[in-house]
Design a protein around this nucleic acid. Structure first.
Length: 803
RNA sequence: GCCCGGGUGGCGAAAUCGGUAGACGCACAGGAUUUAAAAUCCUGCGGACUAAUAAUCCAUGCCGGUUCGAUUCCGGCCCCGGGCACCA
């Protein structure tokens, strides 16, 4: 007998909806708070993916257990609604992207409700809603006010035909991925956010959050703090100077040439007449390469001599200056000192260009550069020192000479914040005719997107917003001006949304201060590992900024983070339309029900692991749920119900409560579920079924499969909503009732087992040893041998060592 | 090349302060029930050798080491996945 999942599930979803069961009273401070959050989805046209369902079920189950444990739970959802697909749809159909977006959101909402997620629907937010982006713009203006937003020329991949800048991955062989149009690297004026000012704070914060170690490491590497030295080189026969950053100041006496990045501002001036042609050619060849290709050329270090020479400030040695694309303009100073003897890249480059080697650390450099620690030689006052002391001595000397200093350097770059799109938050800045910038006053926010007659970029490559007359022709206090026609990136809206859920309808502030203080930070945040760096770093940056403004009390947004793994197609490949291996949650719900889908996804393995979709998985989950349901609805079982205790079930019953409580807390649903199955199997074998166990079983399964659990609860005769019933507790003493099984080994090989009292004392363990030696298998194994010693590990093993 | 994960039956996995490897489930096979099927129930299910659910041996990517005992710890290697901005 199977239950009709459609009827039962829709029945309870209607109750939850009609009675607004999941509406959170955020002002109720009488209970401890618990804020559990999903990364909000981009509302694509294809709808929800089974991968979303995995993360969302994990948080929903946690939210439901926490409610039962007496917490006031905040569990909201929203939509990251700005984005490229909507814009492309709008261009194609000449329709405002909001229409497309709204349609998709309605579909997402239907699917999310049909999965029985316990979201507070009165808190749904959309980043494209003016009442939301009003505050995104507000934060931008605050950043601007605090000198953290600025305009600067940045080298970007610009595609004139598409009228937009492309990401590295969208450029293939110098052509755009879409359309195959030529792409050029050109400097463009772009808005940037000074995330680098927060580098140290972002680094320090990593110590206090409970995140996967791999994600913390990735963020740490991304910020890439390194301590080193700035060395000022002068150019021979010239008043020009350039600086290099090095972490190996100890090797400065070994410097035999310098390399500038092809984009370095001094390249032109330092190129001599005879080298002009070769240099120009080289620069051109670099332009054609994408960043990715430049990176790929790791094997061979290319470069060209400029014709000029630099003077090493430490010993006045004259060394040639090259340009080479293995030096990046975006890291350090865009120039390096090269020490072929002690840096492998320089070693290879110098070999190729027949440049001198000077060994300054006593070592063997016949095969490769020596990059380790050692005794310094050929280094005047630094001779005899080790690396660290030499760095110090040489840097101190440079300071004395006025030719250098200690310097902390970061890999992290400022955040490029402009997009040449329509479908994004307008940047609330007006460019006045006199060249000054006019920030839109706070009380004029939101600055709403204008309607356009069409959404394409202009023919001359300006962003779509430049088409609106009211946008590019404004007058501020008698000055003519033009509004910023770039919009913000999609990251903007997702960098602070977690805070807006707390007080989403507040029109005077991001949120009521006392609510923000109470509810932040998010206690548990779940989302894909692909956001390990960008989103999760940007959100931390904005949070810390708003903390410094006094808006947020805590200084980290997400206390605990989990990543959900990818769900792959049943062929083990990434699910994609083109491979035809996608699975729609709608399909699975239709056939097996939402509870079966939820149960399968939580049972199939650890949440953070990527796993292929198993077509039979939900079927197996439904089979278990039918089996579960029969205990409550099938007369054969109902007639076995009893109010008495059934001692032989005590252990599994109490252990199941313990296991679920502990495992669910840390999102280890798979092992909790298997223990529920063990208990259900035990009940099936019993000829009496205690009602109190059936009652607690509905509660234990409820977080994962809320519909069927609520139904069974009702079948037991209860009328309440399970969400606010008490989470079961267990009796510790009942866990001791089961005797322990000792394994008996001879020389490490298993020879048998003995059931024995749990936590036996020393004299009892002597008896255990005796009975172990009595086992037939043990006797046989010991035949002709002498027992050397017997090791007993309490509650686990008796190990007999014999010769 | 660098960084971070991971490798256990036909499949998903469980067990890691070192202690009975494979819990739980999927798939499969046999049986019961049924006119039949579905559903359900029972049984088996890493491999070898077996009449055997007797014993023994081999098995947690590979090779070594430590140990009474290693999936777990150490050293070396191979493979798979993810990330990357040659980071000076």
């Amino acid at each position: 007998m199977g239950y009709d999942h459609k009827i039962i599930e829709e029945k309870w979803e209607k109750v939850w909806d009609d009675e607004k069961v999941y509406k959170t009273d955020v002002y109720d401070f009488s209970k401890p708070k618990f804020y559990v959050l999903d990364m909000f989805p981009y509302p694509s046209a294809v709808g929800l993916h089974v991968g979303h369902v995995e993360g969302y079920t994990a948080t929903d189950a946690l939210a439901r257990m926490k409610r039962m444990q007496g917490y006031n739970v905040l569990h909201p959802i929203g939509y990251d609604a700005f984005g490229l697909p909507a814009e492309q749809f709008a261009i194609k159909n000449n329709q405002n992207p909001s229409i497309y977006t709204e349609k998709n959101i309605a579909n997402f909402r239907r699917q999310l409700k049909r999965l029985g997620f316990s979201y507070d629907w009165d808190r749904q937010i959309e980043t494209s809603d003016p009442s939301y982006y009003k505050w995104t713009q507000w934060i931008f203006l605050k950043l601007y006010e605090n000198d953290l937003a600025y305009e600067d020329y940045r080298l970007v991949n610009y595609c004139p035909a598409l009228g937009t800048v492309l990401a590295n991955e969208e450029v293939i062989d110098g052509k755009s991925e879409r359309g195959g149009y030529p792409v050029e690297r050109r400097p463009m004026k772009q808005w940037c956010l000074k995330i680098t000012s927060y580098a140290d704070k972002l680094l320090e914060g990593l110590d206090e959050i409970d995140w996967p170690q791999s994600t913390i490491n990735m963020q740490r590497n991304w910020i890439g703090k390194s301590k080193g030295t700035i060395v000022k080189f002068s150019v021979q026969n010239s008043d020009k100077t350039f600086e290099v950053f090095t972490t190996r100041a100890d090797t400065l006496f070994g410097c035999t040439y310098c390399v500038l990045a092809p984009e370095h501002p001094l390249v032109k001036e330092l190129t001599t007449e005879e080298q002009k042609e070769a240099v120009a050619e080289y620069i051109k060849s670099c332009e054609a390469k994408s960043d990715l290709e430049r990176t790929d050329l790791a094997k061979e270090k290319t470069g060209v001599f400029l014709g000029s020479y630099a003077v090493n400030p430490i010993n006045d040695k004259v060394v040639p200056i090259y340009i080479g694309d293995y030096v990046l303009s975006t890291y350090g100073t865009g120039a390096v000192m090269a020490v072929p003897a002690h840096d492998q890249r320089d070693y290879e480059f110098a070999k190729k260009h027949h440049i001198d080697f000077i060994k300054v650390i006593d070592s063997d450099i016949s095969e490769s550069a020596f990059e380790g620690d050692g005794t310094h030689i050929n280094s005047q006052f630094a001779n005899g020192l080790d690396n660290e002391d030499a760095k110090k001595a040489i840097t101190e000397k440079l300071i004395e000479l006025g030719k250098g200093n200690y310097k902390v350097n970061y890999r992290l770059r400022d955040w490029l914040f402009s997009r040449q799109r329509y479908w994004g938050e307008p940047i609330p800045i007006v460019h006045l005719d006199d060249g000054t910038l006019y920030p839109v006053p706070f009380d004029e926010l939101p600055l709403k997107l204008p309607e356009l007659s069409d959404y394409k970029p202009t023919g001359d490559g300006r962003p779509p917003l430049s088409k609106a007359a009211e946008w590019v022709d404004v007058s501020i206090d008698g000055h003519k001006g033009e509004r910023e026609t770039n919009t913000m990136p999609q990251w903007a809206g997702s960098s602070w949304y977690y805070a807006r859920y707390i007080d989403p309808h507040n029109n005077e502030a991001i949120g009521d201060k006392k609510l923000l203080d109470h509810w932040l930070p998010v206690d548990v945040y779940v989302g894909g590992a692909e956001h390990a760096v960008l989103h999760l770093l940007y959100a931390r940056f904005w949070h810390k900024f708003l903390h410094d403004l006094g808006i947020f009390k805590c200084d980290e947004p997400f206390k605990k983070l989990y990543h959900q793994g990818l769900i792959l197609g049943s062929d083990g490949q990434k699910m994609s339309k083109s491979l035809g291996n996608t699975v729609s949650p709608d399909q699975v719900i239709e056939e097996y029900g939402a509870d079966a889908l939820r149960l399968y996804e939580m049972f199939k393995g650890p949440v953070d692991q990527s796993l292929p979709w198993s077509p039979d998985g939900p079927k197996g989950a439904k089979r278990f749920l039918d089996k579960f349901y029969r205990l409550y609805a099938d007369q054969n079982f109902v007639s076995l119900w009893t109010d008495e205790e059934v001692p032989e079930l005590d252990y599994e019953y109490n252990f199941t409560i313990k296991k679920c409580t502990e495992d669910f807390e840390v999102l280890h649903y798979n092992t909790g579920i298997s223990q529920i199955m063990i208990l259900v199997n035990a009940i099936y074998k019993s000829n009496k079924i205690p009602k109190h166990i059936l009652l607690d079983l509905t509660k234990l399964l409820f977080p994962l499969c809320p519909h069927i659990s609520q139904e069974c609860y009702q079948l037991l005769g209860y009328t309440n909503i399970l969400d606010f019933e008490k989470w079961p507790t267990y009796d510790e003493t009942k866990l001791l009732t089961k005797p322990v099984t000792y394994a008996v080994q001879v020389n490490g090989k298993l020879k048998g087992t003995i059931e024995f009292k749990k936590d036996a004392d020393d004299s009892e363990l002597e008896e255990l040893k005796k009975s172990a030696l009595e086992l037939d298998n043990v006797k046989n194994a010991l035949c002709g041998k002498v027992v050397n010693k017997i090791i007993v590990v309490k509650n686990k093993i008796v190990s007999i060592v014999a010769k």
